[in-house]
Write a protein that binds this DNA or RNA. Sequence first.
DNA 1: GATAGGCATTCCAGCAACTGGAAGGTCAAG
DNA 2: CTTGACCTTCCAGTTGCTGGAATGCCTATC
Lengths: 137, 137
Amino acid sequence: MNIGQVAERTNLPAKTIRYYEDIGLVKPMRTENGYRAFRDTDLHKLTFLGRARALGFSIEDCRALLALYEDQSRASADVKRLATEHLVEIESKITTLQIMHDTLSTLVKSCAGDDRPDCPILKGLSSKEEIHRKNND
Amino acid sequence: MNIGQVAERTNLPAKTIRYYEDIGLVKPMRTENGYRAFRDTDLHKLTFLGRARALGFSIEDCRALLALYEDQSRASADVKRLATEHLVEIESKITTLQIMHDTLSTLVKSCAGDDRPDCPILKGLSSKEEIHRKNND
DNA sequence: GATAGGCATTCCAGCAACTGGAAGGTCAAG
DNA sequence: CTTGACCTTCCAGTTGCTGGAATGCCTATC
């Protein structure tokens, strides 16, 4: 199969697929004219990659997951460990964003948003202890 | 003030401060020996930048916020608009991460995590309709 | 056979926001 | 006068692509 069709089926841009080959995640064959020729296994791998990336796994995590996916004698514990670590990362990102959100949302609420220059948001950004006093996480 | 002291006071790495000068966010003076000489206003700006970055504003947003900060005749509405847009972005990131989290956490919970190869996480990554059936956001 | 389009190829550059390291200049202390 | 802690610049690398240029291939139509 040509890269265009693979792109369509996997919902990955052709550019991304070429990139994944570049970094060694897939190794499609080549036809005589130099075009990439993707087999079913390549398609499966790319689909797998697409899903793993959609769950926020890094490329290196994806590489490890792919190796486990291909290793029939893997231990599910190894997969679970990887996934759990990633889950913790996600949770920490959510926490960070939540704190940002709370702080900024407090500032936004306290701003009149009219044509006058007085602005609690700018004040909050320049001085520390103005509004941001309730998170001690 | 030298860059080292500014770094300490603003909690920004010296490298970052140099970078901010590079991209025109601050413009410290120079002493005869070529060292950067930061004034109080530079310090204020850098502190402001540190806070804005900590709230997740992009560098370009920071540039705009800084301009508003310096503009005594700004309209607070302009600040509020910027902040609100950013708030929406944060919310969308949280949503995305939350979905990732829910999906992955479901997968992780269903995995035994022992020395056997059978693994619902890998199954979930390779086939779609296995476990991931309850989000329709 | 010429040509036009829609594919495919490679390679190079750039995004954000730094970070690390090399090679070198400056300054204060001992 | 040397040591060590600063400071300087510049270049390269990080992550995960993405855009674009220059070029080649394939198929269809005139």
